[in-house]
Design a protein around this nucleic acid. Structure first.
Lengths: 77, 77
DNA sequence: AGTTTTTGTAGACTATAGTCCGTAGACTGT
DNA sequence: ACAGTCTACGGACTATAGTCTACAAAAACT
């Protein structure tokens, strides 16, 4: 599991927890829908500012998102 | 206080806590020395992977760094 | 089955992350 | 004063974040 994929997984889970479509998440976060799709699929990695904007839309904290990414990365399979 | 400057402040503090020069931090994190300088001065914002590499060198967690950035951003002056 | 909404994906583009060269300035120690 | 270390900063460069348009593929719902 690499960092981008872990972030993508967390992002998708948080988005669904908030009952948002990719398009809605993109709109409220001032980002492009196709970019959200790429993030969720682990094809892109966000910048610091992007993490903050996404966290804000998802009613959570950047640090909370990072905790979840870290725990995904630490899981052994 | 914007996000980049907050991150830069945290980065510099953590680097000094670890008694590293910018050059050493850059080398151990596989980054360029001049880029570390720009990060600390709030002229650039790191990507997700960069945050992870820096945190690792600084013996801390990405989420810990984010917590510190968040608390700097929440301070009112 | 058909319709609507949502997501994947490609390609061309702009903005910025991150590198690499050099040099100047600040600071420390002798 | 001089040498050595560290940091600021510029310019030119490459890699990638992030946008935009369009279309196809999946789901979801009736």
């Amino acid at each position: 599991m690499d960092i981008e994929r872990a972030f993508g997984e967390v992002l998708r889970k948080e988005r669904k927890n908030n009952s948002l479509s990719q398009e809605e998440l993109a709109h409220f976060s001032d980002l492009d829908r196709t970019y959200i799709s790429m993030l969720e699929r682990g094809k892109r990695q966000p910048s610091l500012k992007t993490i903050f904007m996404l966290a804000s839309t998802l009613n959570t904290l950047p640090s909370e998102i990072m905790v979840k990414v870290e725990s995904l990365l630490n899981k052994k399979y």
